[in-house]
Design a protein around this nucleic acid. Structure first.
Lengths: 140, 140
DNA sequence: TCTTGCACCTCTAGTCGCTAGAGGATGTAG
DNA sequence: CTACATCCTCTAGCGACTAGAGGTGCAAGA
Protein backbone atom coordinates (compact mmCIF):
# COMPACT_ATOMS: atom_id res chain seq x y z
CA UNK A 1 0.00 0.00 0.00
CA UNK A 2 3.03 2.25 -0.01
CA UNK A 3 5.37 2.39 -2.99
CA UNK A 4 4.04 5.54 -4.60
CA UNK A 5 6.11 6.30 -7.71
CA UNK A 6 7.23 9.81 -8.55
CA UNK A 7 4.78 9.90 -11.46
CA UNK A 8 1.90 8.96 -9.20
CA UNK A 9 3.04 11.53 -6.64
CA UNK A 10 3.08 14.13 -9.41
CA UNK A 11 -0.43 13.22 -10.47
CA UNK A 12 -1.82 13.30 -6.94
CA UNK A 13 -0.06 16.45 -5.78
CA UNK A 14 -0.17 18.48 -8.96
CA UNK A 15 3.57 19.08 -8.82
CA UNK A 16 5.48 18.03 -11.93
CA UNK A 17 7.95 15.17 -11.81
CA UNK A 18 11.13 17.21 -12.47
CA UNK A 19 9.93 19.77 -9.94
CA UNK A 20 9.58 17.08 -7.27
CA UNK A 21 13.15 16.01 -7.93
CA UNK A 22 14.19 19.64 -7.81
CA UNK A 23 12.50 20.10 -4.42
CA UNK A 24 14.37 17.06 -3.16
CA UNK A 25 17.62 18.52 -4.48
CA UNK A 26 17.18 21.79 -2.60
CA UNK A 27 16.17 19.97 0.57
CA UNK A 28 12.54 21.03 0.63
CA UNK A 29 11.39 17.43 0.44
CA UNK A 30 13.04 14.55 2.32
CA UNK A 31 15.06 11.97 0.40
CA UNK A 32 12.54 9.19 -0.20
CA UNK A 33 13.26 5.47 -0.02
CA UNK A 34 14.11 3.59 -3.18
CA UNK A 35 12.66 0.51 -4.83
CA UNK A 36 14.69 -2.50 -5.94
CA UNK A 37 15.31 -0.82 -9.24
CA UNK A 38 16.46 2.47 -7.65
CA UNK A 39 13.20 4.29 -8.21
CA UNK A 40 11.91 6.77 -5.64
CA UNK A 41 9.17 5.35 -3.39
CA UNK A 42 6.98 7.96 -1.70
CA UNK A 43 4.56 7.71 1.21
CA UNK A 44 1.36 9.57 2.02
CA UNK A 45 3.23 12.10 4.20
CA UNK A 46 5.31 13.08 1.19
CA UNK A 47 2.15 13.71 -0.81
CA UNK A 48 0.82 15.91 2.00
CA UNK A 49 4.04 17.87 2.03
CA UNK A 50 4.00 18.27 -1.74
CA UNK A 51 0.43 19.52 -1.66
CA UNK A 52 1.37 22.00 1.06
CA UNK A 53 4.27 23.23 -1.05
CA UNK A 54 2.19 23.50 -4.20
CA UNK A 55 -0.50 25.45 -2.44
CA UNK A 56 2.02 27.80 -0.88
CA UNK A 57 3.70 28.35 -4.27
CA UNK A 58 0.31 29.13 -5.80
CA UNK A 59 -0.12 31.77 -3.12
CA UNK A 60 3.20 33.21 -4.25
CA UNK A 61 5.31 32.32 -1.23
CA UNK A 62 8.99 32.04 -1.99
CA UNK A 63 10.84 28.79 -1.49
CA UNK A 64 12.65 30.10 1.59
CA UNK A 65 9.37 31.20 3.14
CA UNK A 66 7.94 27.76 2.45
CA UNK A 67 10.98 26.19 4.06
CA UNK A 68 10.16 28.15 7.22
CA UNK A 69 6.45 27.34 7.05
CA UNK A 70 7.25 23.64 6.66
CA UNK A 71 9.57 23.66 9.65
CA UNK A 72 6.81 25.33 11.65
CA UNK A 73 4.39 22.65 10.57
CA UNK A 74 6.88 20.09 11.81
CA UNK A 75 6.92 21.72 15.27
CA UNK A 76 3.24 22.25 16.07
CA UNK A 77 3.75 23.29 19.69
CA UNK A 78 5.67 26.43 18.83
CA UNK A 79 3.94 29.81 18.73
CA UNK A 80 2.67 30.60 15.27
CA UNK A 81 3.84 34.21 15.17
CA UNK A 82 6.37 33.44 12.45
CA UNK A 83 3.78 31.84 10.19
CA UNK A 84 1.53 34.80 10.79
CA UNK A 85 4.34 37.24 9.97
CA UNK A 86 5.20 35.44 6.74
CA UNK A 87 1.59 35.44 5.59
CA UNK A 88 1.18 39.10 6.53
CA UNK A 89 4.31 40.08 4.61
CA UNK A 90 3.02 38.20 1.58
CA UNK A 91 -0.33 39.98 1.93
CA UNK A 92 1.41 43.35 1.91
CA UNK A 93 3.31 42.35 -1.23
CA UNK A 94 0.13 41.19 -2.95
CA UNK A 95 -1.75 44.38 -2.08
CA UNK A 96 1.10 46.51 -3.40
CA UNK A 97 1.30 44.45 -6.57
CA UNK A 98 -2.44 44.84 -7.16
CA UNK A 99 -2.20 48.59 -6.72
CA UNK A 100 0.66 48.83 -9.15
CA UNK A 101 -0.98 46.56 -11.71
CA UNK A 102 -4.20 48.53 -11.50
CA UNK A 103 -2.29 51.70 -12.39
CA UNK A 104 -0.65 49.89 -15.31
CA UNK A 105 -4.03 48.64 -16.45
CA UNK A 106 -5.37 52.18 -16.59
CA UNK A 107 -2.38 53.34 -18.55
CA UNK A 108 -2.54 50.46 -21.01
CA UNK A 109 -6.26 50.99 -21.50
CA UNK A 110 -5.65 54.61 -22.37
CA UNK A 111 -2.95 53.67 -24.81
CA UNK A 112 -5.09 51.06 -26.52
CA UNK A 113 -8.25 53.15 -26.62
CA UNK A 114 -6.56 56.20 -28.03
CA UNK A 115 -4.83 54.27 -30.75
CA UNK A 116 -6.48 55.26 -34.02
CA UNK A 117 -5.01 52.23 -35.80
CA UNK A 118 -3.30 54.47 -38.25
CA UNK A 119 0.41 54.72 -38.86
CA UNK A 120 3.09 54.40 -36.21
CA UNK A 121 3.86 58.12 -36.26
CA UNK A 122 0.38 58.82 -34.93
CA UNK A 123 0.29 55.80 -32.64
CA UNK A 124 -0.61 56.59 -29.10
CA UNK A 125 1.02 53.42 -27.79
CA UNK A 126 4.45 54.31 -29.10
CA UNK A 127 4.01 57.94 -28.21
CA UNK A 128 3.20 57.30 -24.57
CA UNK A 129 6.08 54.89 -24.23
CA UNK A 130 8.46 57.46 -25.68
CA UNK A 131 7.27 60.24 -23.42
CA UNK A 132 6.67 59.31 -19.83
CA UNK A 133 5.25 62.78 -19.19
CA UNK A 134 2.03 61.70 -20.87
CA UNK A 135 1.26 59.09 -18.22
CA UNK A 136 -1.60 59.77 -15.89
CA UNK A 137 -0.11 57.53 -13.23
CA UNK A 138 3.37 58.42 -12.16
CA UNK A 139 3.71 55.84 -9.44
CA UNK A 140 5.71 53.42 -11.53
CA UNK B 1 27.69 69.01 -25.94
CA UNK B 2 27.66 65.31 -26.67
CA UNK B 3 29.94 62.87 -24.79
CA UNK B 4 27.40 61.56 -22.30
CA UNK B 5 29.05 58.93 -20.09
CA UNK B 6 27.29 55.75 -19.14
CA UNK B 7 26.90 56.97 -15.57
CA UNK B 8 25.24 60.16 -16.75
CA UNK B 9 23.02 58.16 -19.07
CA UNK B 10 22.02 55.97 -16.14
CA UNK B 11 21.18 59.01 -14.03
CA UNK B 12 19.12 60.65 -16.76
CA UNK B 13 17.28 57.55 -17.95
CA UNK B 14 16.79 55.76 -14.67
CA UNK B 15 18.32 52.58 -16.08
CA UNK B 16 21.25 51.21 -14.07
CA UNK B 17 24.75 51.17 -15.53
CA UNK B 18 25.17 47.37 -15.78
CA UNK B 19 21.68 47.13 -17.24
CA UNK B 20 22.61 49.60 -19.99
CA UNK B 21 25.61 47.46 -20.88
CA UNK B 22 23.34 44.41 -20.79
CA UNK B 23 20.90 46.04 -23.21
CA UNK B 24 23.78 46.78 -25.53
CA UNK B 25 24.91 43.17 -25.26
CA UNK B 26 21.52 41.80 -26.33
CA UNK B 27 21.25 44.32 -29.14
CA UNK B 28 18.42 46.40 -27.69
CA UNK B 29 20.61 49.49 -27.67
CA UNK B 30 23.03 50.42 -30.46
CA UNK B 31 26.77 50.15 -29.85
CA UNK B 32 27.71 53.69 -28.84
CA UNK B 33 30.85 55.53 -29.87
CA UNK B 34 33.87 55.46 -27.60
CA UNK B 35 36.00 58.19 -26.09
CA UNK B 36 39.81 58.32 -26.30
CA UNK B 37 40.03 56.17 -23.21
CA UNK B 38 37.58 53.54 -24.55
CA UNK B 39 34.61 54.75 -22.57
CA UNK B 40 31.11 54.65 -24.02
CA UNK B 41 29.91 58.03 -25.31
CA UNK B 42 26.14 58.38 -25.65
CA UNK B 43 23.99 60.90 -27.47
CA UNK B 44 20.56 62.32 -26.75
CA UNK B 45 18.88 59.75 -29.01
CA UNK B 46 20.33 56.97 -26.85
CA UNK B 47 18.82 58.57 -23.77
CA UNK B 48 15.44 58.74 -25.50
CA UNK B 49 15.69 55.09 -26.38
CA UNK B 50 16.70 54.14 -22.85
CA UNK B 51 13.77 56.07 -21.43
CA UNK B 52 11.44 54.32 -23.85
CA UNK B 53 12.82 50.96 -22.76
CA UNK B 54 12.60 51.77 -19.07
CA UNK B 55 9.03 52.91 -19.40
CA UNK B 56 8.06 49.81 -21.36
CA UNK B 57 9.76 47.57 -18.79
CA UNK B 58 7.86 49.35 -16.02
CA UNK B 59 4.67 48.51 -17.88
CA UNK B 60 5.78 44.89 -17.82
CA UNK B 61 6.55 44.43 -21.51
CA UNK B 62 9.06 41.69 -22.21
CA UNK B 63 12.37 42.44 -23.87
CA UNK B 64 11.25 40.82 -27.14
CA UNK B 65 8.06 42.90 -27.19
CA UNK B 66 10.15 46.00 -26.58
CA UNK B 67 12.44 45.00 -29.42
CA UNK B 68 9.40 44.98 -31.71
CA UNK B 69 8.04 48.26 -30.33
CA UNK B 70 11.43 49.91 -30.85
CA UNK B 71 11.63 48.72 -34.44
CA UNK B 72 8.15 50.12 -35.01
CA UNK B 73 9.26 53.43 -33.57
CA UNK B 74 12.14 53.40 -36.03
CA UNK B 75 9.71 53.00 -38.97
CA UNK B 76 7.02 55.59 -38.28
CA UNK B 77 5.24 55.22 -41.60
CA UNK B 78 4.20 51.63 -41.00
CA UNK B 79 0.72 50.78 -39.74
CA UNK B 80 0.60 50.59 -35.99
CA UNK B 81 -1.47 47.44 -35.71
CA UNK B 82 1.46 45.51 -34.24
CA UNK B 83 2.05 48.03 -31.49
CA UNK B 84 -1.64 47.96 -30.74
CA UNK B 85 -1.68 44.16 -30.61
CA UNK B 86 1.31 44.04 -28.25
CA UNK B 87 -0.28 46.56 -25.89
CA UNK B 88 -3.61 44.72 -26.01
CA UNK B 89 -1.97 41.39 -25.21
CA UNK B 90 -0.18 42.99 -22.29
CA UNK B 91 -3.48 44.46 -21.10
CA UNK B 92 -5.07 41.00 -21.11
CA UNK B 93 -2.17 39.63 -19.08
CA UNK B 94 -2.41 42.45 -16.58
CA UNK B 95 -6.16 42.02 -16.15
CA UNK B 96 -5.75 38.30 -15.59
CA UNK B 97 -2.94 38.87 -13.11
CA UNK B 98 -5.08 41.34 -11.16
CA UNK B 99 -7.92 38.86 -10.99
CA UNK B 100 -5.68 36.13 -9.74
CA UNK B 101 -3.94 38.36 -7.20
CA UNK B 102 -7.27 39.58 -5.90
CA UNK B 103 -8.29 36.00 -5.18
CA UNK B 104 -4.98 35.39 -3.42
CA UNK B 105 -5.46 38.54 -1.40
CA UNK B 106 -8.83 37.31 -0.14
CA UNK B 107 -7.37 33.99 0.82
CA UNK B 108 -4.37 35.51 2.58
CA UNK B 109 -6.62 37.92 4.46
CA UNK B 110 -8.72 35.03 5.71
CA UNK B 111 -5.64 33.18 6.83
CA UNK B 112 -4.22 36.16 8.66
CA UNK B 113 -7.49 37.26 10.25
CA UNK B 114 -8.36 33.82 11.53
CA UNK B 115 -4.95 33.28 13.06
CA UNK B 116 -5.43 33.40 16.84
CA UNK B 117 -1.70 33.90 17.39
CA UNK B 118 -1.57 30.76 19.44
CA UNK B 119 0.48 27.68 18.75
CA UNK B 120 1.25 26.29 15.34
CA UNK B 121 -1.11 23.36 15.80
CA UNK B 122 -4.03 25.78 15.92
CA UNK B 123 -2.63 28.11 13.31
CA UNK B 124 -5.00 28.87 10.50
CA UNK B 125 -2.20 29.85 8.14
CA UNK B 126 -0.51 26.46 8.32
CA UNK B 127 -3.84 24.67 8.34
CA UNK B 128 -5.10 26.27 5.16
CA UNK B 129 -1.84 25.64 3.38
CA UNK B 130 -1.95 22.00 4.38
CA UNK B 131 -5.53 21.53 3.24
CA UNK B 132 -6.45 23.11 -0.04
CA UNK B 133 -10.08 22.14 0.50
CA UNK B 134 -10.42 24.99 2.95
CA UNK B 135 -9.83 27.63 0.32
CA UNK B 136 -12.73 29.76 -0.72
CA UNK B 137 -11.16 30.46 -4.09
CA UNK B 138 -10.33 27.43 -6.12
CA UNK B 139 -9.20 29.22 -9.24
CA UNK B 140 -5.52 28.87 -8.47
C1' DT C 1 53.26 66.56 -9.98
C1' DC C 2 51.39 63.22 -7.44
C1' DT C 3 47.96 60.77 -5.41
C1' DT C 4 43.46 59.72 -3.99
C1' DG C 5 39.27 57.94 -5.16
C1' DC C 6 35.52 57.43 -8.10
C1' DA C 7 33.82 55.96 -12.51
C1' DC C 8 34.70 53.24 -16.12
C1' DC C 9 36.24 48.74 -18.65
C1' DT C 10 35.69 43.34 -19.57
C1' DC C 11 34.51 38.97 -18.17
C1' DT C 12 32.45 35.34 -15.58
C1' DA C 13 29.23 33.53 -12.51
C1' DG C 14 25.13 33.83 -9.69
C1' DT C 15 20.10 34.81 -8.82
C1' DC C 16 15.04 32.31 -8.77
C1' DG C 17 12.25 28.47 -9.73
C1' DC C 18 12.01 25.75 -12.50
C1' DT C 19 12.22 23.34 -17.57
C1' DA C 20 14.34 20.78 -21.42
C1' DG C 21 17.11 17.44 -23.26
C1' DA C 22 20.66 13.72 -23.61
C1' DG C 23 21.56 9.12 -22.77
C1' DG C 24 20.58 5.18 -20.32
C1' DA C 25 17.93 1.74 -16.98
C1' DT C 26 13.58 -0.27 -15.39
C1' DG C 27 8.83 -1.73 -15.37
C1' DT C 28 4.61 -3.31 -17.55
C1' DA C 29 1.26 -4.87 -21.11
C1' DG C 30 0.37 -7.56 -25.06
C1' DC D 1 9.95 -10.93 -26.37
C1' DT D 2 9.19 -6.73 -27.72
C1' DA D 3 7.38 -2.31 -27.45
C1' DC D 4 6.68 1.57 -24.91
C1' DA D 5 6.02 4.36 -20.91
C1' DT D 6 8.26 5.67 -16.99
C1' DC D 7 12.07 6.11 -14.35
C1' DC D 8 17.19 7.47 -13.46
C1' DT D 9 21.29 11.13 -13.51
C1' DC D 10 23.38 14.95 -15.30
C1' DT D 11 24.00 19.28 -17.59
C1' DA D 12 22.41 23.39 -19.65
C1' DG D 13 18.99 26.86 -20.51
C1' DC D 14 15.23 30.39 -19.52
C1' DG D 15 14.42 35.87 -18.45
C1' DA D 16 16.27 39.93 -16.98
C1' DC D 17 19.21 41.20 -14.73
C1' DT D 18 22.95 41.59 -10.53
C1' DA D 19 27.39 40.90 -8.22
C1' DG D 20 32.10 40.52 -8.12
C1' DA D 21 36.97 40.19 -9.66
C1' DG D 22 40.63 42.47 -11.59
C1' DG D 23 42.11 46.18 -14.20
C1' DT D 24 42.16 51.26 -16.65
C1' DG D 25 40.79 56.26 -17.04
C1' DC D 26 40.02 60.71 -15.30
C1' DA D 27 39.32 64.87 -12.48
C1' DA D 28 40.44 67.38 -8.39
C1' DG D 29 42.95 68.46 -4.21
C1' DA D 30 47.70 68.76 -1.62
Amino acid sequence: MKKITIGEAARQSGVKVPTIRYYEGIGLLRTPGRSEGNQRAYEQSDLDRLTFIRHARELGFEIEAIRTLLSLQDNPLQPCASADAIAKARLVEVKQRIRSLTALKAELEMMVEDCGHGRVDQCRVIEVLADHGQCTHHGH
